[in-house]
Computed example of a mutant assay.
Amino acid sequence: MKDILREIGMIARALDSISNIEFKQFDLTKGQYLYVVRICENPGIIQEKLAEMIKVDRTTAARAIQRLEEQGFILKKEDESNKKIKKLFPTKKGEAVYPFLKREGEHSNTVALAGFSLEEADHMLQLLQRVRKNIEVDWEFVKKGNKRKY
């Protein structure tokens, strides 16, 4: 079997490292920018859905969300019909930084796909979505306290 996941991991770590350096000016580090982007794109999202979307555990998401709230990028609002549910929204500060974060993501996509045809890029996206769906099965399984058999 080819080391596809190693390649994907190296790409992800390189992009994460670049983003952590470039977003330092906004005091966003350690992947916090992902949360800001997703909350700006999905205002009113609940913490559990956001964690699922980003593929992190609830504790990791809770810490990141708390820090972003303290920094003034996002705010939590109680759901009008169910006070236990807290919805996440970007603040003016979060909305102000979002266009820069979005441009960085688009630039990284352009750099990553340099030299690929549209058909190749579409095909790669379809293949990676299949890989993600395969991995999500194990992610859900392990998240529930189960152990994978190797």
Rank of each mutant, 00 (worst) to 15 (best):
L68G: 05
A96V: 03
F73I: 00
D122N: 10
G145E: 01
D3E: 14
T110R: 15
Q71E: 08
A62K: 06
L68C: 10
M53R: 12
T29M: 06
T29W: 04
D122K: 10
R148G: 05
T29S: 11
F26N: 01
F141V: 05
F23S: 05
R130P: 01
I18M: 09
I74Y: 00
E106F: 09
L75K: 07
A51N: 02
I65R: 01
V142E: 06
I18L: 11
L88H: 03
A96F: 02
L15C: 14
T91K: 01
S108Y: 04
K147D: 11
V56H: 09
E80R: 10
L113S: 13
K55G: 04
G72F: 00
E69Q: 12
G94N: 02
H107N: 12
K93Q: 00
S117P: 01
Y150F: 12
E52N: 08
G9S: 14
K149Y: 03
R58M: 05
Q25P: 01
G94Y: 00
K83S: 15
K102Y: 13
K147T: 07
V142Q: 06
I39Q: 02
P99C: 13
E119C: 02
N134E: 08
K133Q: 10
E136A: 13
I39W: 03
E69T: 15
N20Y: 01
R63C: 05
D79T: 07
G72C: 00
F26T: 00
G72H: 00
Q129E: 15
T29C: 07
V56E: 10
V97S: 03
L127Y: 06
K76H: 10
E136P: 01
F100R: 12
L50V: 08
R103S: 14
I8K: 04
L128I: 12
W139S: 06
I135T: 06
M10E: 13
L118I: 10
H107K: 15
K92M: 08
D122R: 04
E120S: 08
I18K: 06
V56C: 12
V137Q: 08
E119I: 14
M124E: 04
M10Y: 11
K133F: 05
G105S: 13
A12G: 04
G115I: 08
L34P: 00
I4W: 12
M53G: 03
Y35L: 05
I18V: 11
S81G: 02
R67I: 14
